[in-house]
Amino acid sequence: MEASQARLESAASSAAGGRRLLGAPALFVYAGAALAAGLLLAFWYAPIDASSMGFSQKIFFYHVPIAWAALVAFSVAFVAGILYLRSSDLRYDRLGLVGVRLGLLFSLLVMGTGMIWGKAAWGAWWAWEPRLTTFLIACLLYAGYFVLRSMVDEEARRATYAAVFAIIAFVDVPITFFATRFLPEGLHPVVLRAGDAGMEGSMLLSLLVSVLGMTLLLAGLIRLEYAAERLRDEIADLKDRLGEVGR
């Protein structure tokens, strides 16, 4: 029964997986610091927006970084999908899953903050504005990713399909954004416009600090979630092995 001995040893070593969680908190500390700094800068350093939006424009300093983080998370899933298809390494499948999950979470927050801003700026909770609409469609799209995963039982096949879908979905998002502009003109407040030096330096600085904070937060969450998925897989593995030893 040396085989079961080896299994028990490998079970003990997986406790080391728990220790890997410790990398994440450091990132959360940095993220917290950057986000707090961004908050302070946004409210006390950046000027009140000169246009009609006034004070409500402050949400911009969260709305945009969250949207940025959502797109980063989806691109992580996209790259993980390509890497999985090239390697068949299940670690990339796990990374892709975490990327889509966090991307979806952040997209929901984008819509939430967008709706709050919309209510303040245009007096309506919802408007079919291209960027907001794109995020709505992206949410529906990536929700399908989880339906797909839940309907394929075999692990390698599930990972393959999930990777293919994450790649296609990521390609689709910018196309959707382009297409939404075929609708009548948008209402989105334009704070940063291409070609025009535009935003005041103080606004830009506050924004960049918040973007940095949000990116760090995302990195920490990816790490945490990845470690959690890893442990989940290990637990399932151990359960299987226990069942086998018991037989």
């Binding site: 469609i137 529906l140 799209l141 929700a143 399908g144 339906v147 797909l148 309907m151 394929v152 039982d153 096949r157 399909y161 293919v164 879908f165 296609i168 979905a169 689709d172 196309i175 959707t176 382009f178 297409a179 939404t180 075929f182 609708l183």
Partner: peptide, 25 residues
């Protein structure tokens, strides 16, 4: 893809419709 899933007739619209939105527009 959906052919190999457990409920293919449910899965296909869930995957297909959001992706085809831009073309539909």
């Amino acid at each position: 893809i959906s052919m190999n899933s457990r409920a293919r007739d449910l899965l296909l619209p869930v995957l297909f419709l959001p992706l085809i939105v831009p073309l539909l527009i």
